[in-house]
Design a protein around this nucleic acid. Structure first.
Length: 509
RNA sequence: GGGCCUCUAGCUCAACUGGUAGAGCAACGGACUUUUAAUCCGUGGGUUGUGGGUUCGAGCCCCACGGGGCCUACCA
């Protein structure tokens, strides 16, 4: 529903449409107009707050029921409950953190005029300021016994009922209401902030430098995914929104920023569901003279530190009430070995394509024609038989060469690369490589990708000449890691991706 | 992309086999000086997502479109 906005901030006139508004909207607009007409400000520029609600609570942890103090405070908050017994009103104010404090307004303390004004002016959802002594009600509720009050901001729309959760759609479309109503929603914001802060500080402690690389790119690369496209008017060129920061972070390493990371948004023009969002936050880090094993350790330490920072424990409690422990060492499984065991038939990097396709057939997998290459089929078999079932945090090692164009071949085992994927609760949380640093091999890999692209694979990379040129100037051996921040939040909280993102993209109505 | 479900008052939800669209909270009027989703008395509030169709009659049946959810395939 669209509510017409009256023109002119000081207007006290009704729009023609005002009379057609739902009753509750109309009543509140009329109150605003009446307050302005009476010279009472519905939106004062400031109110004299002296204490946060949390501070009042902290300074009076255990007042006895009926106790009074001489501490005079000024507090403000959103009205979330109103109870009126005639000559005494009880108001519950909530602050942004969800802390609540009761305000009591009595005829004896504020006088008839102010009490009547309060009753006629204040609605659920308004911001109200109250001034008075801190006391405790007879029923033991910490309260401010008001000697005066002021409207801090008049709400023109009613608060949704706080006794029931909003629909899932309303929760993401109007997150501000979700934050008011649902503590879990507020917690997520704080948990996410704590996790981000933890990751940054852990990396800084290890000597990493945070950089920001281009989001608008002339050539997308660094991952297999379809990009968003946009256009730059000044140069009249098409640009891609980045799908990964990898190729720029590696250029930074060439330039001597030997421990580098970026924690920011990337964009993928693909599906949106409970585990995928078109824009999501990605951490990538690269360390010169490291390899896939050193970044595996780093990744584990970052996840465990994040859990500690957000919850004070590595055994986190998920949304469904179960406990999930990310502590300790995490098992490392070899992809071909574990897939062979689960499947009951041995596959190796040398297994012919026809045989792999037979296995896929048995498994009931439909293989997209563009994916009919040995490594991709082997990977699909792994995901089918093993990947989705890996509940405990697990590193899966040694992927096929042909699906990992930026990873170096294993130092001793032919046909596989020095790569791991980290599985957590059945989904892929992070990936780590011993990065390919040989520019000649890298060119061959790019050319193989370009061939796939020519055959219609929108996810395939192109030959990135600028990146190759950087590489040809000498790239130190290094380990690299990428981790989806939203997925880390999902792993640590058990919530869906749209609950981990404050304002996820939703289709316009 | 495919399949299934769903959209009703400000919010959350009912409404039998097609027969006058209801409840809780919220709102409006009144009572009440210690309430905790206060209580009590009274009242109003609806283009049932949008557009067509069938029918004497549609919230309900049919078609199209739009939003949302779940399952499924793909990407993290």
């Amino acid at each position: 529903m669209t509510i017409p906005v009256s023109s002119g901030s000081g207007s006290t006139e009704h729009d023609d449409q005002t009379s057609s508004l739902p009753e509750q909207y109309r009543v509140r607009r009329e109150k605003r107009d009446r307050l302005l007409a009476e010279g009472r400000e519905p939106y004062p520029v400031a109110v004299p707050v002296t204490h946060t609600i949390a501070r009042v609570r902290a300074e009076h942890p255990d007042l006895e029921p009926g106790a009074e103090t001489d501490d005079v405070v000024g507090v403000a908050g959103r009205v979330v409950h109103l109870r009126n017994t005639g000559k005494l009103c009880f108001v519950t104010l909530a602050d942004g953190a969800g802390e609540r404090l009761q305000v009591m307004l009595s005829l004896a303390e504020v006088g008839q005029e102010e009490l009547d004004a309060f009753k006629s002016d204040v609605d659920l959802g308004d911001h109200v300021f109250a001034h008075g002594r801190v006391i405790c009600s007879r029923r033991g509720e910490l309260s401010v016994f008001a000697d005066s009050w002021r409207l801090a901001s008049k709400a023109l729309r009613p608060l949704p009922t706080l006794h029931k959760e909003s629909s899932e759609e309303a929760r993401v479309r109007q997150r501000y209401l979700d934050l008011i109503a649902r503590p879990v929603a507020r917690d997520m914001v704080r948990v996410r902030s704590a996790v981000v802060r933890s990751i940054r500080s852990e990396l800084h402690e290890r000597g990493f430098t945070e950089v920001e690389t281009p989001m608008l790119q002339t050539q997308h690369g660094g991952a297999s995914a379809r990009p968003f496209m946009t256009h730059m008017n000044a140069y009249d060129i098409d640009l891609y929104m980045r799908i990964a920061p990898e190729l720029f972070l590696k250029r930074a390493v060439v330039g001597g920023i030997e421990r580098v990371f970026e924690l920011n948004r990337i964009f993928r023009n693909e599906g949106a569901d409970s585990t995928h969002s078109p824009e999501f936050a990605m951490l990538e880090s690269y360390e010169a003279y490291g390899d896939y094993m050193s970044v595996a350790r780093l990744t584990r330490e970052l996840v465990q530190a994040a859990a500690m920072a957000a919850f004070g424990t590595t055994a986190v409690t998920l949304a469904d009430g179960t406990t999930y422990d990310v502590g300790g060492e995490w098992p490392q499984l070899d992809m071909y070995t574990v897939t062979s065991e689960a499947m009951g038939a041995t596959i190796t990097p040398d297994t012919p394509l026809a045989e792999l396709l037979t296995h896929a057939d048995v498994a009931g997998l439909k293989i997209d024609p563009k994916h009919v290459i040995e490594g991709k089929v082997a990977e699909l078999l792994f995901e089918h038989y093993v990947g989705d079932h890996l509940h405990e945090p697990t590193f899966v090692l040694h992927y096929p060469v042909d699906t990992s164009p930026l990873v170096r071949a294993h130092r001793s085992r032919p046909g596989v690369v020095e790569k791991w994927d980290l599985y957590v609760r059945g989904f892929e949380l992070a990936t780590g490589y011993s990065e390919l640093v040989d520019p000649v091999v890298q060119r061959q890999r790019f050319e193989a990708q370009a061939l796939l692209a020519a055959k219609g694979d929108h996810d395939a990379m192109r030959v990135d000449e600028d990146f190759l040129e950087a590489m040809e100037h000498g790239m130190p051996p290094m380990g690299g890691m990428g981790m989806g921040l939203d997925r880390l939040l999902m792993a640590l909280t058990g919530q869906g991706i749209r609950e981990t993102i404050l304002f996820p993209l939703v289709k316009p109505r």
